[in-house]
Amino acid sequence: MSALIPDKPGEAAHNAIDTARHLSGGQMAWYRFSRNPAALIGATIVISVFFAAIFAPWLSPHPESAGAHVDFMNRHSAPDAQFWFGTDNVGRDIFTRVLYGYRVSLGMVVGVLGVAVPLGVVLGLVAGYFGGRTGFIVMRFTDIMLAIPPLAMALAITAVLSPNLINAMIAITLLWWTWHTRLIYRIVRAQMNEDYVEASKLAGASHFHIMFRELLPNCISAISVKITLDAGFVILFGAALSFLGLGIQPPTPDLGTMVSTGSEYLPEHWWEALMPGLAILYAILGFNLLGDGLRDMMDVEL
């Protein structure tokens, strides 16, 4: 595989059609990606979820259903041409609420990973670069955090802090950074034996420079694959929390809450729990396929 990657990525871009040897790094990656049907499906799903979330007010057939709307005439109506996913116990259109639910889910992903990833990466870099006692302390602390069953801990935290969206996010963030620390620590430990690290040390580069300008770029592909896979699991986690009544509070449309309310009307009104459930599944599937595709494409081990 390495024989196919040109010596100077980017330079050979203009005559890429000749042979594989003339493909730039980016084109090579795109070629591998486009040859992977699972990854393409994943990318399509992820794009559609983002699209649904961003344009929810324009896409939804019954925008009024997003809030505390009540329509008893159409209560519990099965999926049909007017209500694609059916309606819930107060007659709100479930399809509309799913679109808005994606907003909450994706907001959660951005909020959680936006804090947890930088934190985990920096700690991993520090622990891996300095090693020794610093590394030992950081990694043992990470081990302890990893020994706590995440959902149990998140439940406890949200319960004590009073259940709402922000606290659910705090709880998930507190547990999420550990995985990134572990990943980065492993990569950095392996990189520490490389010549370029030794060379920059000899050239008198500062610790900061070596960590963030030399080592970090070597972690980027692993981090981006991990983030993509993580996104799906953050959605799952948030949905699980609100399913138990500890996440987002009504009437904000949230997929987990919808499944939990809908499950009270099983099995006659099956769509009320199943449709939001499948919507969660769809989003997680997308991030998973995309993440796996990226992993194959960038050839990283997680």
Binding site: G232, L236, A239, A240, F243, S260, L281, I284, L285, N288
Partner: peptide, 8 residues
């Protein structure tokens, strides 16, 4: 198995 949430 991997992508289906436990509660779903």
């Amino acid at each position: 198995g991997v992508v289906t949430p436990g509660f779903v």
